[in-house]
Computed example of a mutant assay.
Amino acid sequence: MRLAITILFTLITSPAFSQDLVTVASTFLNDNKYIEAKETIDEVFEKPDGDKSARAWYTKGRIYHEILKSDAPEFNKFKSNLKDFTGEVALCYNKTKALTDPGNNLFRLANNQLEILWTDGINKGYKDYQELKFESAIKYFEMSQAVKPQDTTAYLYAGLSAQNAQNYKQAIDYYLAMKSFTRLSKLVYNRLIICKQAMNAPLEERLDMIEEALFEYPDHLPYIAEEVRALIKLNKFVEAESRLNTVLKRSPNNFELRLRRADLFDRIFKEAFSNGLPERSEKYFEMASEDYEIYLNTYPQDFTANYNYAVMINEQANRVYDRVNLMSEDEYVISGKNTEEIGHNWTRKALPYMEMCRKIKPDDPGTIRALKVFYERLKMTDKLAELNGKG
């Protein structure tokens, strides 16, 4: 009796018995009885040597794969985390390949299933992306990530989906995940910078991202422009000026950066005067004027550049008018008219740029208010009358 029990125990625990269970699981799979198939194949892997069989791994992969594809609600309990469950399927196929050689039929079958699994996630994700179902698209792209963790496609599209869903932190995580196995493209850095802006990240944090992009693409002018913009907003004028001067020496015809420098010099012109540094203020006024005029000579219809240049020139006029207003009656008799004329000359210089603004945007209220002041100062009564009722 003891001998019979020993023989039976040996049969139950032998590799042959596990292979019989694989056959049973395959039968259930072919009959579309996926619950029974899963229970049977899971039993195989509870045996000591169950994970040594390529056939067992492949069969488990096929069963889990069918459960993954099925929409039947009874399978949802297995797929509460779609990416993790997809990872299990991929693991089965990869284990099959590891236990066979490339010439083996199971190796080829497992490899084909991996490609099908990856492509299915990409195609379903892209379909939902096109239909603006961004949250659903993310889940499918994550499935493809689980199959090919080092393929950039699924990470890029997951990032784009998250960004369109306004989940900017999630999008940044997907984009940055690609750094582990590839150099980030300009497209990805563009998206990272946009995400940082959209989520109102601190300026220092945005600057860090821009400088990371510049480390990879040091001569990419849009990144340089973004860096300068961030530096100016952080009042890091010295760093911004140094950066612009260096780049414009190499690319003197980059008008976007020249306008950026004009704006910077304009700010320094105003700041220096406020800080009691009139000589520095005048120096930067001259440099800003030069950059504005070079830019406007090429882009005369740029409303913002015309407006800002006119306002900067008018700042000079205001400083003169302030001196006139502070004069005593005696001082005004002696030099008031001449000093006032200096202010008028600055206003005359600003006038054509502000008038150009009106041509570009005839009803802009800021432009109309400024022109009323200019015309009144210069006693241009006809033009002032034409503006009555506007602004």
Results as ranks from 00 to 15, higher is better:
367 T>A: 10
335 S>M: 12
367 T>S: 09
175 Y>T: 02
308 N>E: 13
219 D>H: 11
229 R>W: 06
239 E>Y: 12
20 D>V: 05
344 H>E: 09
295 Y>S: 08
161 S>H: 07
390 K>F: 12
282 E>N: 15
337 K>T: 12
130 Q>A: 09
206 R>G: 15
117 L>G: 00
282 E>F: 10
176 L>V: 09
108 R>H: 06
113 Q>N: 14
197 Q>Y: 08
321 Y>E: 08
313 I>Y: 02
246 T>R: 11
132 L>D: 10
270 K>H: 03
8 L>T: 01
281 S>V: 07
254 N>Q: 14
143 M>V: 00
128 D>F: 14
22 V>M: 00
134 F>N: 03
186 K>C: 08
117 L>Q: 01
386 E>L: 13
55 R>Q: 05
108 R>V: 07
378 L>N: 07
125 G>W: 05
230 A>F: 10
134 F>A: 04
193 I>T: 11
2 R>M: 11
231 L>Y: 06
294 I>Y: 10
123 N>C: 09
151 D>C: 04
341 E>V: 07
43 E>Y: 09
373 V>C: 04
109 L>T: 01
105 N>W: 04
160 L>A: 04
101 D>A: 02
48 P>D: 01
193 I>C: 09
230 A>M: 15
124 K>T: 04
387 L>I: 01
106 L>V: 00
222 P>T: 03
91 L>G: 04
379 K>M: 07
358 R>G: 05
330 D>W: 12
275 N>Q: 14
165 A>F: 06
35 I>R: 11
300 P>G: 06
314 N>C: 01
122 I>Y: 07
230 A>G: 09
293 E>F: 06
40 T>D: 10
55 R>E: 03
32 N>P: 00
175 Y>C: 04
191 R>I: 03
4 A>W: 10
225 A>Q: 08
23 T>F: 11
88 E>L: 08
287 M>R: 10
45 F>H: 04
306 N>T: 01
222 P>R: 08
375 Y>I: 06
279 E>R: 11
30 N>C: 02
336 G>W: 07
193 I>D: 11
201 A>Y: 12
271 E>V: 09
69 K>R: 13
42 D>C: 00
200 N>T: 09
385 A>G: 10
209 M>I: 15
350 A>D: 04
173 D>V: 08
382 D>E: 14
262 A>E: 02
